[in-house]
Amino acid sequence: LETFPLDVLVNTAAEDLPRGVDPSRKENYLSDEDFKAVFGMTRSAFANLPLWKQQNLKKEKGLF
């Protein structure tokens, strides 16, 4: 999966995202380093959170 810089994904409308980016899964296009910096946890820890908590975190970080 291709990764993009944080500033390309945060608070970006679906139509302005790079081609192929799923707007409902912007976090998947962050590098592992950016993911950890944004969410303060690994991808696996994030995946283990309840869906509502994942969505709330994504909203807080501008990735929803």
Rank of each mutant, 00 (worst) to 15 (best):
D7P: 06
N48L: 14
A45S: 11
G62S: 04
V21K: 03
K36I: 15
S24L: 15
L57T: 03
P23A: 11
S24Y: 12
A37P: 00
D16K: 10
L1M: 13
L6D: 03
T3S: 09
K61H: 11
L1C: 14
L9M: 04
D34I: 06
A45P: 00
R19P: 15
S44N: 12
R43E: 01
D22K: 15
D22I: 06
K61W: 06
S44A: 14
K58Y: 04
N56S: 14
T3M: 08
K58C: 05
A37N: 13
R25Y: 11
F64R: 06
T12M: 11
K58I: 06
G20M: 07
V21Y: 05
E15P: 09
A47I: 10
L17S: 04
G40Q: 12
A37C: 10
R25C: 12
G62T: 01
E27S: 01
F46Q: 00
R25D: 03
E33V: 11
N56Y: 13
T3K: 09
K36R: 14
Q55A: 11
P5D: 07
N11G: 10
T3I: 12
F46W: 08
P5N: 04
G62W: 03
S44C: 13
E15Q: 12
D7L: 10
M41Q: 03
R19E: 15
L30W: 02
F46D: 00
P50K: 04
P18N: 03
F39A: 00
T12L: 09
K26M: 15
F39Y: 01
D7C: 13
E15L: 06
P50F: 01
K61V: 14
N56P: 00
P23Q: 07
E27D: 04
V8N: 05
K59A: 11
F64T: 14
N11M: 08
E2V: 15
L57H: 04
L17Q: 03
D32I: 07
K61Y: 09
D22E: 06
P5H: 04
D7K: 09
A47H: 13
N28D: 15
K59T: 09
D34T: 07
T3G: 05
Q54N: 00
G40W: 04
N56K: 15
F46R: 00
S44I: 13
M41T: 04
P50H: 04
E33A: 12
N56V: 14
F35L: 01
P23F: 04
D16L: 10
K58S: 03
K61N: 12
D32T: 07
F46A: 00
F64V: 11
E60W: 08
F39L: 07
P18I: 04
Y29I: 01
D16R: 08
P5W: 03
M41D: 00
K58M: 05
E2R: 09
K61M: 08
V21H: 03
N28H: 11
V21Q: 04
L63S: 02
E60V: 08
A14T: 13
E15W: 03
E60L: 12
D16M: 10
E2T: 13
T12P: 05
N28Y: 12
W52E: 13
L30A: 01
D22P: 03
E33T: 11
R25N: 09
D22C: 08
N28T: 10
K36P: 02
T12Q: 08
W52C: 12
L49M: 10
F64Y: 15
L6S: 04
F35Y: 02
L51Q: 11
N11Y: 06
S44T: 13
L30K: 00
P18D: 04
Q55K: 11
P18F: 01
F4W: 13
R43H: 06
V8E: 06
M41I: 08
L51W: 12
L57I: 10
R25K: 14
K59S: 09
K61F: 08
D16T: 07
S31Q: 04
V21G: 03
P50R: 02
G40V: 05
D34H: 05
P18C: 06
S24N: 14
L9D: 01
A14C: 14
L6W: 08
L9G: 02
K26V: 15
V38C: 11
S24G: 10
R43P: 06
N28A: 14
A47Q: 12
Y29V: 02
F4K: 02
N11L: 07
D7I: 09
P50D: 08
K36V: 15
E33G: 09
L6R: 05
P23M: 06
K59D: 06
F46L: 01
E60H: 07
V10H: 05
V38H: 05
R25M: 10
A13E: 10
F35N: 00
M41N: 00
A14Q: 10
